[in-house]
Structures are given as C-alpha cells and as structure tokens.
Write a protein that binds this DNA or RNA. Structure first.
Lengths: 201, 201
DNA sequence: CGGCGGCTTGAAAGGCATCAACATAAGTGG
DNA sequence: CCACTTATGTTGATGCCTTTCAAGCCGCCG
C-alpha cells in the first residue's frame, strides 16, 4: 500500500493496551496499521465489550466513519503497535492527482465488506472455525507452516464472536483433541485447513 | 443517487422469488435497487440458506465483489422489483470525469460497512430488536408513523439473524405483548423506538 | 373452495452461558 | 532472581435460552 507514504500525516506509537484516542465526534482520518494489532470495540450497558473488528499489519481501518461522519468505536492496541494517520482529505487530493488510486481504495474498502462473514453462523463451532481460518489468512505475513501467534485473548475472541471465554476455550480444546489444530496457549498451528473449512461451511 | 443515470446499462425487471443471475465468477457490475426488495444468500451444505443481506429501494449492492472479483452470493427478489446494472468500468470512467463522485461512492460503500452491527449480539432478543430498528430506518421511504410492511418472511429474518423461524416468531409475539411493537402478519408498527434501542443497546 | 406456504404456539432436547474452582502465565516490586 | 500479585486460560456442574420436532392456524393464489 504505497499510497500511504504520500498521504500520511504522522506515525503513532502505541503500547499494548493503550487506547488510540480519536478526535471526538468528527471523522477526519483513516489509520493504517504498520506494526502490531488493534481492536475496535464498544462497551455496552452491562459493562461487556462488544468487539467490532481486529486489524493487523497492512490493514486500514476507519472506512465505516465516512458514512457515520464520526468514530463510533474505541480503538485499543492488542500489542505494542505503530499506526499512521491518513487524513481523508489528503487521500482525496491524492486520488485526484493519481486516478489509479481510485480502484485501489475501493478494493481495500471492499475487502472490509468481506471480513467476518462467518459471524452469521448459528453454532459456536462454525464461528470459531471460521475465525481461525480468517486469522490464518490475514496473519499470513506472520505465519509459517500454518502456525501463528494469536495476538488476541480468548476473551477478545469471545467478545468478537458473541461467545463466552469458556466456550471459546472448550472449542479450541476440542479442535485440538480432534487433530484440527494444535494450541499451546497463544501459539496456534492449523493441522487441517480443509476440515476447518468444512466445519465453517 | 443521480450518478446512476449516466452509468446505467440497463434496467432489469424481476418477479417475486426470481433470481437475478449474475455472470459467473466474474465481477463486472453493481446493481442499484430502483423498486422492491432483494436478498443475497448462500445455500450451505445442510441445505439451509444463509442470508448475507437485504437491499431496498435506493440501495446498491455488489461492492463486496470488488475485492473478491466474483459474486459469492446468489440474489433473489423478495418482491416484484426493478434493479439497474451499473458496470464498474462505467462508474470509474464517470468518476474520472466528475471527481466529486469519488466521495459519494466511498460514502455509499462506507454505509454498507455499518449495516448489520447488531449481528454480533449474543442474544436473540438483541438481534431481533436491532434488526427492526435497522429496517425502520432503511425503509424510511415506505414508512409512515413508524409503520411499514415487511417484505421479508420470518424464515428469511431468521436466516439473516442466525435464528430459527420459531424463535423470531416468538420474539415478535413477546415484543407485541410488551407493547414495543404491533404486528399484523407482515405489517409492523414500532411503538417504542427508545425501548427497542435500549434492548439492542 | 381447496391446497399450500407462511406463521404461531407447545413440549422436549441440546447447546451455550453462568458460576465456580483451579491451573498457568505474565507482570511487579523487593 | 524470587515471592507475590494479577491476568488469562482450562475444566466441571448446573440452569437457561434457543433449537428441534410437532401440530394447528391463517392468509394467499389457483
């Protein structure tokens, strides 16, 4: 994503658990993840976090605010992270000068429309399976032999998938017992993408 | 959405339940709904429909295929409907000539990113409440006094929300008993947007 | 009017949440 | 580096919510 370099305003370094504070009620910029991982979330009235999405190296977030014109979610770093701000107006100017960017941007936004399809699934099994496959694709840069380090706690997985920590944990244990994956705390290896895919449909 | 007129290739008339057949495996066009309602769906291995989205008058679908480069969903008309095809290349050309369209398109795509946030919710109650509110906004043109005609069967609602027909039906009955809504088959009147909102968070 | 798809409601089964106890890992300060 | 504390993960028992299965009702179309 080379377009960033020209349009980038500044780099922001975040420590694990740090919040990326956004100008209140006013959308101005996208944010591109240079390093690390982040989550966007809301806290709902019973105090639980509802996680909207995870964002990893190379991904861009904030597109949804073009429509709402304000940031509706909080953003926190899951690991130490570096993001860079891309003001929307800079980007529009840049597109003006370089029309081929047009397609690129639409491509990236379109990508976001395809994330999380598996959230529709009824059963917890399907959702967790879908999530693991999704992660293995999106963390590809950090993946070797279908093995990667989860930058996400079980609780965050649950809050994203609409499940409890316990259910997530139990399912991961069962997937391991069934030789679909191998887990050692945060280290996950996918042993059978095919079977997982089948499971998620 | 005036841009359509210049970029439109042709109008397509669909009868209720008719499928909008798309060129296989090759993304070329968006489709704008001029009249009626449609759904996009997949049939999964146990024969159940998994519904990805509903599209009503004034909405445009197909953005997700920019990324995938092929249509991953089937499309069916829920009512008699008219859609018009907007070839992607026509649209890009048009943007070239008229850069203000750029913002408009991004706005519309961004809108799609904001649809279905309530699908994350754990409980059936939250999801149905969220869905009713969503519909009342999106069907605004057809809505009078918070009352509208659902173009969607209970089964489609269920398949969209990840619930069974029965659960949907039961919840609608309960919402009525609690004076949140009034339903008469497909006719729905929302009596308390506030309480529904609270319910959905 | 009859047939059929869609809707509602009931009873029973099953899956996930809740509550709880414990295990392990990570972080902190001496 | 260790003792302590806290966060995170696992596993079990119980209960609730949603699904499943089943029956009957209603509205629509031929």
């Amino acid at each position: 994503m080379k377009f960033q370099n020209a349009a980038v305003k500044k780099h922001i370094h975040l420590e694990k658990k740090e919040l990326l504070t956004l100008p209140k009620n006013q959308f101005q910029s996208f944010y591109a993840v240079k390093k690390g991982a982040l989550k966007t979330f809301q806290v709902n009235k019973d105090g639980k976090e509802s996680i909207r999405g995870f964002f990893f190296e190379g991904e861009v977030f904030g597109y949804d605010a073009i429509y709402t014109n304000r940031y509706t979610y909080s953003i926190a770093a899951l690991t130490d992270a570096v993001v860079c701000e891309i003001p929307y107006n800079n980007l529009l100017d840049l597109i003006d000068k370089n029309p081929t960017l047009q397609k690129k941007i639409l491509y990236l936004v379109s990508q976001q429309l395809n994330v999380g399809n598996y959230l529709i699934s009824t059963s917890a099994e399907q959702r967790v399976a879908g999530f693991l496959i999704d992660l293995s694709k999106r963390l590809e840069s950090c993946t070797t032999h279908h093995q990667y380090i989860l930058p996400i706690t079980r609780q965050d997985m649950g809050n994203y998938l609409g499940l409890t920590t316990e259910t997530v944990s139990r399912l991961l244990s069962r997937f391991q017992k069934d030789n679909l994956i191998k887990i050692d705390n945060k280290k996950i290896a996918i042993l059978s993408i095919e079977k997982l895919n089948q499971m998620a449909e």
